[in-house]
Amino acid sequence: MVELQGIRRSFTRPGGGTLVALELAELVIPKARLCALVGPNGTGKSTLLHLVSGLLRPDTGTVRVAGVSLQALPEATLDRFRARSVGYLLQGGQLMDCLSAEENVMAALLFAGQPPSQQRRRARELLDELGVAHRARHLPAALSGGERQRVALARALANNPPLLLADEPTASLDAEGAAALSARLQGLVRDLGMTVMVATHQPERLEPDMIVQLTRPSQAGGER
């Protein structure tokens, strides 16, 4: 499902100079797997997720998702790919504060080209499934941390993406919430055949199918 080859991604530091954020010789994640990306801060977990979502392009190497080479796609196609094929559960939820829970989910459907008549129905359906339908018209500021996380998950799943990316999804959850989320992610893999990549410091909470250990890249740019 996800294949990365010879990846190197660096950033320009604000004060000048270059920071190598990720170096990866090869990574292959088959379809319908729950993959945990682990490693200390600064090892490039979020960068790896951004590369797979098409938000970033690598300096060198190739990124293929479902057989499609992302670096070959023009930006507009990449946007459409992200809207329809990738669900992204951002760190902390990252809901839009100006939109209600329901509208946050509807926004994801809007950018995937869903007509307005179906947006509300699908959003209600997902919020109901995740147990936050009663908070549909509330703004994120009025939701608890767990509720925000579930709304964010609903938004990520809105378009039935084959690939779900999650950045530290259990970081702000208690043990019970983390367990519930883990069960849900495993259910997505098992029941829907979804591929899930999770950047986490707590892989034991997720019971993943595979674990990818990332290490801090050498700033000289050496191969790992």
């Binding site: 979502s53 938000l55 930006e75 507009a76 946007d79 459409r80 992200r82 809207a83 329809r84 990738v86 992204y88 951002l90 990252q94 809901l95 839009m96 504060d97 100006c98 926004a107 994801a108 950018f111 995937a112 938004r155």
Partner: peptide
Amino acid sequence: EVAVLRVLGARR
């Protein structure tokens, strides 16, 4: 907000 919109697939 703009970054989140882009993550959701909003075009530039």
